[in-house]
Structure formats: structure tokens, C-alpha cells
Write a protein that binds this DNA or RNA. Structure first.
Lengths: 133, 133
DNA sequence: CAGGATCCGTTCAGATACTG
DNA sequence: CAGTATCTGAACGGATCCTG
């Protein structure tokens, strides 16, 4: 085969990989959870339902933009519900769905691992950092 | 209290929050896992130990830079080991530590959830997208 | 109260080229 | 073989201002 296939083959491999990667289910979940605010919202709503402004206060530091964006994507994925009550002014309540609660369990697993192994990781880091220098 | 405290209070709250957030154990783990290549390396090494170039081939699409960066941070955290054999040319073997293997179990939990609930999430998305428009 | 719109700085991944 | 060094563009988060 001529040389032109070398680069082409690599490109093709990468495209296939990207496609696989994008469609990978666990990848999607990981990407969701990795979002800075998602888990915080999940945990906050796990305790009890909250209104928009209550969430904003509870998660101190989140901008309206990010909070809305996060809530919208969670709602879209069927993880939280959004209930508008047409009072004056309007009130909007957010709550976890069953699906959202089940995801919260997974987050709990991660948290358990983190708490159980954090000191090991930090010890490893110190070792590593003191190795040379 | 005078008005200047309003903004100050918010800033302070945010700083405290950021500090809390940065020191949150599960946050650190989530951030690690969210890294695009970390889980892929973990899974690849979970099957069997591999050399640098083998990893690069197995994870098609990763640049040398990213692969090295990922491996270094994993090594630093005590999740993988790096063994240099001074042959000519040198060979470098990477392997999971026990800690790395235990983290792989957590990733497995996420994967399980993803596979079990992916269709629900996608159904929710279709619902949401068809709601208006 | 609950957001939408916009701008802007920083971060970060990837491509490329080079080295022991 | 196993990286390192540098550059650049695209994405993203945050701040700010505005609305029903």
C-alpha cells in the first residue's frame, strides 16, 4: 500500500475512536458528574426539595447562569423535576426524580471510596514529590 | 451595618466555599475521573500491564502530551506504577497498583448505572426536546 | 423571584516539532 | 522508544446587565 494511507489510517482510527467515545454510556455519566455544580445540586436536592433562590443560597458561589444551566440539563436528563407555581412573583421548585436519587447513590459510592482512600493518595503524592528535587 | 458589607459578605462566603470545595475528597476523585483519558488508561491497564507505546496504540487518539500528563498524575496519586528498564532503547512499563484497581471498581459502579439507566435518560431527553418547539 | 443575554479572560486540549 | 517544549484555537466559567 502507498504511503498516503499512513496518515489516513490514523485519522480514520481517531474518528472511529471519537465515535465510540462519544457513544460510551459511562463516559456520558462521568461527564455529567464531573460538572462542577451537578453533584452539588444533586446532594442539595437529596436532602429536600428546594426553590431556585434556596439552591442559589445553599450552593454559595454559583452564578445564576451556571445554576440555571445545570438545572436545565438535569431536568432534560430526567434527573430533576421543575415545578412552576404561578404566584406573584413566581416560585419554582426543584426536586429529584427517582432516577436522580439512584444516581445520587452512585455518587455516594465515589464519595465512600474517596473518604476511604484519600490519605493513601495524599501519602503517595508526598512520596512522589519528595522523590527528586 | 453599612452597605459595603453586602458585597464583602458575598465574597467571603465564596472564598469559604471555594476552600471547602477544593478540599472536598469526593470532589478530587470526581475531578480525576472526569479527565477524559484517566478512565481509559485505568481500564486499559486493568486488563494487563502495558508499555507506553502500547497504551498510545490502545487508546488511539491520545496525544503523547496528554498520555504522559495522565500517566504522571496517576503515578503521583499512587494509582499506577512506572517501571523503567534501561535497555536500548529504554522500555517503560505501566501497571495498576492495588489502589488503582480499587478505583477501577468504582468506575465499574458508574458504568453499571450508566448501562442500566441510559435508555431512561435518553427517553427523558426526547420528551424534553419535544415538549415545545 | 427566576431567570435570559452578552462579553470576556483564562484554561486547556491537540497539533507539531524536537530530544536522550 | 519514550517522552519534552511550544504554540494556538476552541470551550467554558464568571461577571454584569437586563426582563417577565
Amino acid at each position: 500500500m502507498p504511503t498516503l494511507t499512513a496518515d489516513r489510517r490514523r485519522d480514520q482510527a481517531k474518528e472511529e475512536f471519537d465515535a465510540f467515545f462519544a457513544s460510551c454510556p459511562s463516559r456520558k455519566v462521568l461527564d455529567r458528574l464531573s460538572d462542577k455544580w451537578v453533584t452539588l445540586v444533586l446532594v442539595a436536592l437529596g436532602e429536600h426539595d428546594l426553590r431556585y433562590s434556596e439552591l442559589a443560597r445553599r450552593i454559595a458561589g454559583v452564578s445564576p447562569k451556571m445554576l440555571t444551566q445545570t438545572l436545565r440539563s438535569l431536568e432534560r436528563d430526567g434527573l430533576v423535576t421543575r415545578a412552576v407555581t404561578p404566584t406573584v412573583p413566581v416560585t419554582v421548585d426543584y426536586a429529584l426524580t427517582d432516577l436522580g436519587r439512584s444516581l445520587l447513590v452512585v455518587v455516594g459510592k465515589v464519595k465512600d471510596w474517596a473518604e476511604a482512600n484519600l490519605h493513601q493518595v495524599e501519602a503517595a503524592r508526598e512520596d512522589y514529590d519528595n522523590r527528586d528535587e
